[in-house]
Amino acid sequence: MLELAAYGARRRFKGALALSIGLSAFSALYAAFFPSFQGTLDIEAYVEALPPVFVEAFGLRAFDTIEGFLATELYQFAWVILLGLYLAYSAASLIAGDVEDGRMDLLLALPVSRARIVGERYLSLVPGILVINVVVAAVTWVATRAIGYPIGTADLVIVHALSLPYLFACAAIGLALSVLADRASVAQRAAMAVVFGLFLLESLVSSTDYSWAGAVAPMRYFDPTAILVDGSYDLAGAAILTGATLALVAGSQWYFRRKDVN
């Protein structure tokens, strides 16, 4: 069982480790920069001068605290945007890449169902996502203590734990587009466009009368600033993201079972 998932996870391990190191370097750099940044600017005046949409999109609150600073610089930007885009892009090649290269014909010749192929291809992303979260959380915990501005351990653990449903949802969007397209490049571009488009949609409508439209955006249900600054945990949002992920994966399996693979 799960042989396809294990094989895919092994192939992706080096990439996940490299990404973990890169994001950890960003985290350590931001932490090292914070003490010199804290006393050099009138933070409140700086934030008030920014457009409200920008402030809302990047969760610019309590920017003069290590929690608010990392929530904006690391989690709102690197986690919500960059990592979400990367996972959607990566997942978009899971099925379309095999179809395009002809490897899917070999897989379909094996005694495995199409639904299992889709499901295990998606599961191959899970170990890498977990590795990234564990490594970056550990580095962030150490780095903030090294500079004398320790971030709360519980809040740090929870922000990474609650990021998992969000990241899995972004990957599920990529998977869905991967079964819809026959070319990996098309699916990858579409996945990045969809995830970034949803981020823009949520940013633009969140403070308007049309905020209901942003309910389709996974970013609405994961707010690092609320977790780190306010200690507020959106468990209902995590449940919604989990349900959406399961629905997207199940829908991808259903569609691929009926798709004519050429």
Rank of each mutant, 00 (worst) to 15 (best):
A6F: 02
Y7W: 11
G8K: 08
G8W: 03
A9C: 01
A9F: 00
R10M: 04
R11F: 03
R12A: 13
F13G: 00
G15K: 06
L19V: 06
S20A: 15
I21W: 03
L23H: 04
F26M: 14
A31H: 09
A32F: 12
D42H: 10
A45H: 04
A49W: 10
L50I: 05
P51V: 09
P51M: 10
P52L: 02
F54A: 12
F54E: 02
F58Y: 10
F69Y: 15
L70W: 06
L70G: 05
L70N: 14
A71D: 12
E73V: 06
Y75F: 15
A78D: 04
W79T: 12
V80H: 12
L82R: 10
L83C: 00
G84E: 01
Y86E: 09
Y86D: 06
L87S: 01
L87R: 02
A91W: 01
L94F: 02
D98R: 02
D101Y: 07
G102P: 02
R103W: 11
R103D: 13
L106H: 03
A109F: 02
R116P: 01
R116Y: 08
V118R: 03
Y122T: 10
L123T: 08
L123R: 07
L123S: 07
L125Y: 03
L125A: 09
G128F: 00
L130I: 14
V135I: 13
A137P: 01
V139C: 10
W141C: 03
V142Y: 14
T144I: 07
T144W: 09
T144R: 08
R145Q: 11
A146H: 09
P150R: 05
I151P: 06
T153R: 05
A154G: 03
D155S: 15
D155R: 15
V159I: 06
V159H: 02
H160N: 12
A161W: 00
L164C: 00
L167E: 01
C170F: 04
C170E: 03
A171G: 05
A171S: 11
A172I: 04
G174S: 05
L175T: 07
L177P: 04
S178V: 04
V179P: 10
L180A: 13
A181Q: 10
D182C: 01
A184E: 08
A187L: 02
A187V: 03
Q188L: 00
Q188S: 05
A191D: 02
M192D: 02
V194C: 02
G197H: 08
G197Y: 08
G197I: 13
F199R: 06
F199E: 06
E202V: 10
S203R: 09
L204I: 15
L204G: 08
V205F: 07
D209W: 15
D209M: 14
W212S: 12
A213C: 08
A213L: 15
G214E: 13
R220V: 07
Y221L: 01
Y221F: 08
Y221C: 02
D223K: 10
P224D: 11
A226L: 14
I227E: 06
L228S: 10
D230E: 15
G231T: 09
S232R: 11
S232G: 01
S232L: 07
Y233T: 04
D234L: 01
L235A: 09
G237D: 06
A238I: 04
T242S: 13
G243P: 05
G243D: 09
A244P: 08
L246G: 13
L248Q: 03
A250Y: 12
A250N: 04
S252P: 13
Y255M: 10
F256L: 05
R257V: 07
K259E: 08
D260I: 09
D260E: 14
